[in-house]
Design a protein around this nucleic acid. Structure first.
Lengths: 209, 209
DNA sequence: TCTAAATTTAGAGTCACTCTAACTTTAGAG
DNA sequence: CTCTAAAGTTAGAGTGACTCTAAATTTAGA
């Protein structure tokens, strides 16, 4: 897992790690908006220019090593598809992924800060939505692959969009109400699996020409 | 509809209209990102400071008179609730609202530009998502009101989130594929109403205490 | 040891956005 | 009609994210 790269690459990773660490530390104490990129660079003891050498934007530092969840869900989908309807499989994949994302050792400390940040900082709401939205295509593609026989391309997109949209809505409203997020997630997945029916298909082709 | 306000208010509306007009014109020709607020102000023949006097941000010009759709959908929900399940009512409300939003006379010219901008300009994706997401609460509240007897608070949030998320996913994928958006919307609403079942409720209270 | 590529850096510049203090115009009282 | 208060507009300075260019430093590999 740890390729013994050259000295060059190792140094680069070290400054990158220093930047991430400094950023999370500052975001945690002063808040996201009140932390400046210059402060992060100073705390990491590099020049401000170096920050943008590693991250495309200030937010990027927070989502830097994200996108892993997307791949995890997509992968799980394939093994969970058997015998379940798409929504059940999706729900299980989400459950499984979030379950061990919470207990994952490396970066677990930062993970807690991240969740707090993206659920509370207003300035991060839009970026979070955007990135999640972008990752939907990948999941939809995986779902379509796993249910190629019964699930059209558009139906897969719609389904994933619905599940993700529902989760976001529930998590956000729970967050505002001060309720625990994991419970909101469970409730949501329950509701979705309970109220979804595998589709009385009208035609077999839905991207008719 | 047009309160004959004082000269003061009329002048203010005129500069506001000039700003909106200039902004759309410039966005349309040079693109959103390549248009600067200074250029908009110059085109409207006001100072740059005045722009921010009317709009909180550059994007704000585009969404300025939006938010109307939200209220429309919420209102329609109440009259459409009878005899339908929640998803059917929601779908009908969306259909009805988008139907006459397309044919609404005033600003119809700008409306076309707006749709093109928010579906193609990458810089507007995040703001669009954010605003839509924010408006969900209002719709969810209206839905909960219309189905107070059978639909819990959380279920309403989940449902609206699912419908909105599905629509967004479909519209976005259609937009990337170059397919007509209205057709994607119709397909999506069809899929949703066909695959949703009114819920075999487990308990009557889902925000158990 | 020398050269080429990768990292970092300084520095100047753009743009969105904020804040403050002034300036102009309208509204309404007397 | 006049005078004052408020609303609207403006100039100007400043902050912070982000870009670009060119130079400095460091490592890789011949």
């Amino acid at each position: 897992m740890e390729e013994p790269q050259g000295l060059r690459a190792r140094k680069k990773q070290r400054t990158r790690a220093a930047l991430i660490d400094a950023a999370y530390r500052l975001f945690d104490s002063r808040g996201y908006s009140d932390t400046t990129v210059n402060q992060i660079a100073a705390a990491a003891e590099v020049s401000p220019a170096t920050f943008f050498n590693h991250f495309a934007s200030k937010e990027d530092v927070i989502f830097a090593d994200g996108g892993v969840l997307l791949e995890e869900i997509s992968q799980r989908l394939e093994s969970l598809a058997a015998g379940r309807n798409p929504v059940e499989a999706l729900a299980d994949a989400v459950r499984a992924t979030t379950a061990d994302a919470g207990t994952r050792a490396p970066g677990g400390e930062l993970e807690a800060i991240r969740i707090r940040l993206i659920t509370t900082e207003p300035a991060l709401q839009a970026p979070t939505l955007r990135r999640t939205f972008d990752s939907q295509h990948g999941i939809a593609a995986a779902l379509h692959r796993a249910y190629a026989a019964t699930l059209g391309h558009r139906e897969a997109e719609v389904l994933v969009g619905a599940v993700v949209g529902a989760i976001f809505a529930a998590v956000h409203s729970a967050s505002r109400a001060g309720e625990p997020l994991d419970r909101a997630l469970d409730d949501t997945l329950d509701i979705l699996t309970r109220t979804w029916r595998p589709a009385a298909r009208r035609g077999t082709r839905e991207s008719a020409r």
